[in-house]
Write a protein that binds this DNA or RNA. Structure first.
Length: 109
DNA sequence: GGATTGACGTCTG
DNA sequence: GCAGACGCCAATC
């Protein structure tokens, strides 16, 4: 029973995201070679049931907080990011291009 | 077990 | 640059 599902890998990578930074589904999917960014989003959906998984640090490629609706409160995701020093406007990450954390690069694979 | 859905991404028009 | 369609793989109905 290999509990090491691709989901757990997503959890680990998500937890590796530094505070004040954000990542995208595509980057994580590419790093884990899942083949589909949807897998990351789906896995993160399950991550809501797990503790210690800062899913709020993961956004789509546009930097939009697409998953905010899945949180207990749609504003909680933004609040958390702002609390970490990430500027949010209109449910989108400001300077996202700078703040985006790419595991394939930061971890240098 | 087939069909649908999903926190996305890339391509084409 | 924006809008629509397709692809992706897994889970759920």
């Amino acid at each position: 029973m290999e509990n090491k599902n691709y989901k757990e890998r997503v959890f680990e990578v998500t937890q590796l995201i530094p505070r004040g930074r954000v990542s995208t589904y595509g980057l994580i999917a590419n790093y884990l070679d899942l083949g589909s960014a949807r897998m990351v989003g789906w896995a993160l959906n399950k991550s809501l049931l797990s503790n210690g998984v800062p899913a709020h640090r993961v956004v789509n490629r546009k930097g939009e907080l697409s998953g905010r609706n899945f949180f207990p409160s749609p504003t909680m995701m933004q609040e958390l990011l702002e609390s970490e020093g990430v500027a949010i406007e209109d449910s989108k990450v400001q300077d996202f291009k700078q703040l985006r954390w790419d595991p394939s690069i930061e971890l240098e694979e």
